[in-house]
């Protein structure tokens, strides 16, 4: 009896608190919504100029080395989220097709509750973005280092790295799954082509539940058309999940002039908060 009263008291308090906040009568004044910091949310940062021709490595290929930021402004800008120059591509100009799911996969994605979708995605649970997530779902800068024999990618996000041989070798037989998969690369003209298989199945290809099978095959194409720009495009094949291969829009990264910072995901409170919210609204789960 006492326990039931306790639960009901908590429930009543929760209802009161919600109504209190919604009514805006909290000591917290509700704002009218005008942006209080000039320019916040509508930065006018302009795209970088092309910057001249791309530098060449000794073997004549474009040198992809540099610190790169997603979008066209060559830096990070929290106030610029409304600015199209921050986007990797303009969906109005080069729209990306939705993932061509097989019916069973589409159903599985559709069944994810909003909260489950949040809790399972790497940007909330701090798991690695993997391949191609480290390019297509990554808002943080990367550093590329091209040596005579390797393409090395350092991701600021989660202090991640991958090292890809560029000598055109074939994949090994039955590689172990890894978050960054097993990648091998070769040049096609001025484009570095990275072929990746054996990607850990916990990675997602978008923020909305695009899961993949152990048969996923990812081909990335990276080029440096000018000094200040990197172009990235990826094709994903997955005969168990997709009806056909999917190719991204050409995506733009721009040259930065600062060092990557350390980023270890050591204080993640969101996963716990979302799980608590899910338990409250959908019932307790794992």
């Amino acid at each position: 009896m006492r326990r039931r009263l306790g639960i009901h008291a908590v429930t009543a308090i929760s209802v009161f608190a919600i109504l209190h906040i919604l009514s805006g009568s909290a000591r917290a004044q509700s704002g009218t919504g005008q942006v209080s910091v000039a320019g916040f949310g509508k930065s006018t940062a302009q795209p970088l100029s092309p910057g001249g021709p791309a530098p060449r490595a000794a073997d004549g290929h474009p040198d992809l080395s540099g610190v790169w930021f997603p979008g066209k402004i060559g830096r990070e800008d929290l106030t610029a989220e409304g600015n199209p120059a921050r986007l990797q591509f303009d969906p109005k100009v080069t729209p990306e097709e939705k993932p061509p799911y097989q019916p069973w996969a589409a159903e599985k994605v559709k069944k994810l509750s909003t909260l489950d979708a949040e809790i399972l995605r790497p940007s909330v649970n701090c798991m690695p973005r993997g391949v191609p997530g480290m390019f297509i779902t990554n808002p943080y800068p990367i550093e590329l280092i091209l040596t005579k024999t390797e393409f090395i990618q350092l991701d600021e996000l989660n202090n991640n790295f991958r090292i890809i041989p560029t000598d055109g070798r074939a994949h090994s037989k039955d590689p172990d799954p890894a978050f960054n998969g097993e990648g091998v690369a070769h040049w096609e003209g001025d484009t570095l082509v990275i072929d990746t298989i054996a990607i850990d199945q916990r990675t997602w290809n978008n923020f909305a539940g695009w899961f993949h099978s152990d048969q996923e095959h990812v081909v990335e194409r990276i080029s440096r058309p000018t000094m200040n720009y990197l172009t990235y495009q990826v094709t994903i094949e997955d005969p168990k999940v997709l009806t056909k291969p999917w190719t991204s829009a050409p995506r733009t990264w721009s040259l930065g002039h600062e060092a990557l910072q350390e980023y270890y995901c050591t204080n993640n409170r969101e996963e716990e908060a979302l799980k608590a919210l899910r338990d409250l609204t959908e019932g307790p789960k794992k």
Partner: peptide, 17 residues
Amino acid sequence: FAHHGFQAEYDGSKVIY
């Protein structure tokens, strides 16, 4: 197409000070 958990956990239609 939302990128992040913010909108599942917080209400972006309201601003408070």
